[in-house]
């Protein structure tokens, strides 16, 4: 599976620190299904769809499919810190918006103010048992019901110098928000880095594991988006391998070729 790899950010085929291979494996162990087309969403109710770091906008057809999925009583968890998710949020009819920028805090887990520690302020199934979270260059959220937010000693580091300047103001910023749309609900996490290998692999850093556990063990069908999410990114050999693995015809042909070559070699007594 992971013999060959890509270095694409967030890619589920990337086994480097910035890939999401570990999380994808965990999800697949729990029977998560990959959604490769908006049409795959039809028929689900009470399911949870995970969108990690979307990098494309929804066209009208996709927007309709996702919105009806949501309104049927499903849950969508969107993790994004670039702001691409805003178009999707708009298309889904959500009021929550992502404010891109380097959210920084004096409450830091590592020696860098961008490794923000955030605190739970409200309860919801997604953040059940999550008291503090360690985020990796998150963005700030506005709108919706804020579930997790930073401490007051936080600011949006506009110039990226890791220091608070006169133009930057201290304040509490939301990093996990919830909103009900139709019969469904939408959660926005302002940091998709929560799902990258190095963050998932960290032992006992805050309650990050608990949050991921809540997403994975929700007791409902879990869907991994591969329409807009960067997790689908499969450039390089990983992509070729993946295509080969997922296409039965190519797979059969390959096996036959190998067998034939073996037979030929055996007949000519090459071995």
């Amino acid at each position: 599976m992971h013999l060959a790899s890509t270095t694409e950010e967030y890619s589920r085929y990337n086994i480097q620190w910035n890939g999401t291979s570990i999380f994808s494996d965990l999800a697949e162990e729990r029977g998560a299904v990959e959604v490769r087309s908006p049409d795959d969403l039809a028929g689900y109710t009470g399911a949870c769809l995970l969108l990690i770091a979307p990098d494309t906008d929804f066209d009208d057809a996709a927007a309709g499919a996702y919105r009806s999925f949501l309104e049927r009583g499903n849950t969508i968890v969107l993790a994004d810190d670039f702001g691409t998710g805003n178009q999707i949020l708009g298309a889904l009819g959500s009021e929550i918006r992502i404010l891109p920028g380097n959210l920084s805090s004096m409450d830091m887990e590592y020696s860098d103010p961008h490794t923000v520690i955030a605190y739970r302020t409200a309860n919801a199934t997604l953040v059940d048992g999550v008291e503090t979270l360690m985020l990796n260059r998150p963005a700030a959220l506005e709108g919706g019901e804020i579930l997790v937010q930073t401490s007051i000693l936080s600011w949006i580091d506009a110039d990226g110098n890791r220091h608070i300047d006169a133009a930057e103001t201290l304040g509490k910023y939301g990093v996990v928000a919830r909103e009900s749309v139709g019969a469904g609900e939408i959660y926005v996490i302002s940091d998709p880095s929560l799902f990258i290998n190095t963050m998932v692999g960290l032992d006992s850093v805050r309650d990050n594991h608990r949050l991921i556990g809540n997403i994975l063990e929700g007791g409902r069908p879990l869907l991994l988006d591969a329409v807009a999410s960067q997790t689908r990114a499969d450039d390089g050999i990983a992509g070729i391998l993946h295509t080969v693995k997922s296409t039965t015809l190519i797979k059969t042909t390959l096996i036959c070729t190998v067998l034939l070559l073996g037979a030929y070699a055996f007949r000519r007594k090459i071995f």
Binding site: E109, Y110, R137, V205
Partner: peptide
């Protein structure tokens, strides 16, 4: 969008 915590010091 992120940095590797492995390269940072946990404080």
């Amino acid at each position: 969008s992120h940095q590797n915590p492995e390269a940072l010091k946990q404080i």
